[in-house]
Design a protein around this nucleic acid. Structure first.
Lengths: 339, 339
DNA sequence: CTAAATTAAGCAAACGTTTGCGTTGGAAAG
DNA sequence: CTTTCCAACGCAAACGTTTGCTTAATTTAG
């Protein structure tokens, strides 16, 4: 009744040969005759032998797994990214150990530790938005573990990362609105602490500077990205003596919150235009939504970061005296206009 | 330069004591004096010791991981479910090994095998929609691996599963439409091979039977769930001499495809009512969408199935002669009406 | 003051697999 | 008939950790 897994030892015993021969037979080692090889194979099948990855990992010192840490999987961006990560990893015979930080520094720390315990061969991280202290990430460097950050990256030197070029994305978005004649453009940004917020703001300024237009800082308001916080933000903007005629919002949902609020309070005007980020697929079916959205290609980001990570792992397995170069990949955004 | 992980052997050597003492010291074993215990702890910290999970897993024959296989993570349902799975698993000190079948039987087979290799202690599977042959699942039974299926389950006896009660969900949806006066209700279903399709159909019939209304089988059409296939389906329905006044669609996206198509071809009528399944959060912000949607609680399904699985794993570790009972959990759906 | 009990530690086996090296037996070469 | 060579296989160590059993030193009891 007590089920135990069959080992090569069992096969060896049944066949009256040594374990090393069994091991070699299963790996098609040339020094094993075809006859025994076949005997071993059929006995393995008969007994239902399943090789033990833990034992193999242990003995070779390699686990064949990479760790992935994201804030929250229920965010479509990360779900899509993880989907891509799994695809690439599987293609290259790696398995995924997965964890979510839920945007807390503590859980992120625990996860990183746990990944180290499990001897993942590399780590893909999109860091928590609340992470201020990077000491747990330093531990990774000490252990020379290949790490690639994506989307949400720490403010550190000498790291590999893959991100969207949101600054340029924002410039594109601004140019789109400027081209359509808007001259008073609002920006409902995320929390100022976020790197993503800084990039949007930066792009916003750049676009105006490039066109030699003057900058009104009060057109930038910050939201905590909740529905209530966003409604607050839009009210602030519209209360201005000269309210914006177009607004860039932190993401699609932010835009939708705003538009929904305006419609409910009868303040909605068809000529108030919105541009947001993320380009959710559902967007093109929405009657009242942003007229354009900045596509961030989560799938590509996942793919690219995984490829880099796996390359780094491979590279690590060959001796090299070269000082390592650091990859900084910027995935081009694309402004998707609603037909 | 060649970084090797510090082992308890290293600690033992530095301190001139045995490895067993180090191991016990780190586990606060009573037969180790406080003095050596402290010496060991500080030396471990100083050398940067990180316990090797692979070694521990190997030696104890337990990996502390569960496997999760879903068709596609980019589907929000599975992303949300996996999010819940990870939460529960982490709470109970289990790690997640993750893979996607991409709705192909072959990949699913490979994944199941790989999970067996990795000696996961249990498996959570939502099977591929194209899986017809269950031989790879039988292998799991042979190895007495606890398995809980969720959402998409195989047509087999003696398995544990967690699903939504879509039959009742459909009855609820039907009653909602009947209450609103509709008497000719269409059903755009998914592929007939899907269990989920059968349940919808079953509920559809039941609802009509319960109200002693007559059944018109031609009001049920099947779609491959692509946009084109769905458009085909709606056209079939509307071409009838007595077209439906309300339609239940396989999911939210199906409904949206249909509505979008009707609006584009100027066939949209306000009184043609839609009810769908999934209740995507964005739905309540859509001007033209289903007027109600069947919430399937992916998060709860993920939670529940993980809890059951972990309980099964624990149970397995205590000797029991009782024949195992099989859990069949039906998560109640809820019809969410648009305000 | 000896015997028993207790405390603190060490020894060694075990987990499943891989792999360098050693050992056979027989065939080919001399 | 030796010697050499090769094919085919076995031996044993190693990977890092845990744990049952043993041992040594110290304390307590009688």
């Amino acid at each position: 009744m007590e089920e135990k897994f069959v080992t090569i030892k069992d096969i060896a015993q049944k066949l009256g040969i040594s374990v090393s021969s069994v091991s070699r037979a299963l790996h098609n080692h040339p020094s094993i005759s075809l006859k025994t090889r076949n005997k071993v194979r059929s006995m393995a099948k008969q007994l239902g032998y399943i090789p033990s990855s833990p034992a193999i990992s242990f003995q070779r010192g390699k686990t064949g797994t990479i760790g992935v840490i994201v804030p929250k999987l229920s965010e479509p961006f990360f779900a899509t990214a993880l989907s891509a990560i799994e695809n690439i990893a599987t293609q290259r015979n790696y398995k995924i150990l997965f964890g979510q930080s839920l945007d807390t520094e503590e859980k992120e720390k625990e996860l990183v530790e746990s990944m180290l315990h499990h001897r993942v061969e590399g780590l893909l991280i999109s860091i928590s938005k609340k992470t201020m202290n990077y000491s747990h990430l330093d531990a990774l460097k000490r252990n020379h573990l290949p790490v690639v950050y994506f989307d949400c990256i720490p403010h550190q030197k000498n790291i590999h990362y893959v991100v969207c070029d949101l600054r340029n994305g924002t410039i594109e978005a601004m140019n789109y609105l400027l081209r359509k004649g808007h001259r008073t453009i609002g920006l409902i940004n995320g929390p100022p602490s976020l790197f993503a917020s800084m990039e949007r703001e930066d792009g916003y300024f750049r676009a105006l500077t490039m066109k030699r237009l003057k900058i009104d800082r009060s057109l930038i308001v910050s939201s905590d990205l909740s529905e209530a916080g966003t409604i607050n933000a839009i009210e602030t903007l519209l209360a201005k003596k000269k309210p914006p005629t177009a607004i860039i919002t932190f993401n699609d949902f932010t835009a939708i919150y705003v538009i929904n609020h305006l419609r409910k309070t009868n303040k909605y005007k068809k000529d108030l235009e919105f541009v947001s980020y993320a380009n959710m697929p559902i967007l093109k079916f929405m009657e009242y939504g942003p007229s354009a959205s900045v596509e961030q290609f989560p799938y590509r980001q996942g793919e690219k970061s995984t490829e880099i990570l796996l390359d780094l792992i491979q590279q690590k397995n060959v001796i090299t005296s070269e000082p390592s170069a650091f990859f900084k990949v910027y995935v081009e955004t694309q402004l998707i206009e609603k037909e």
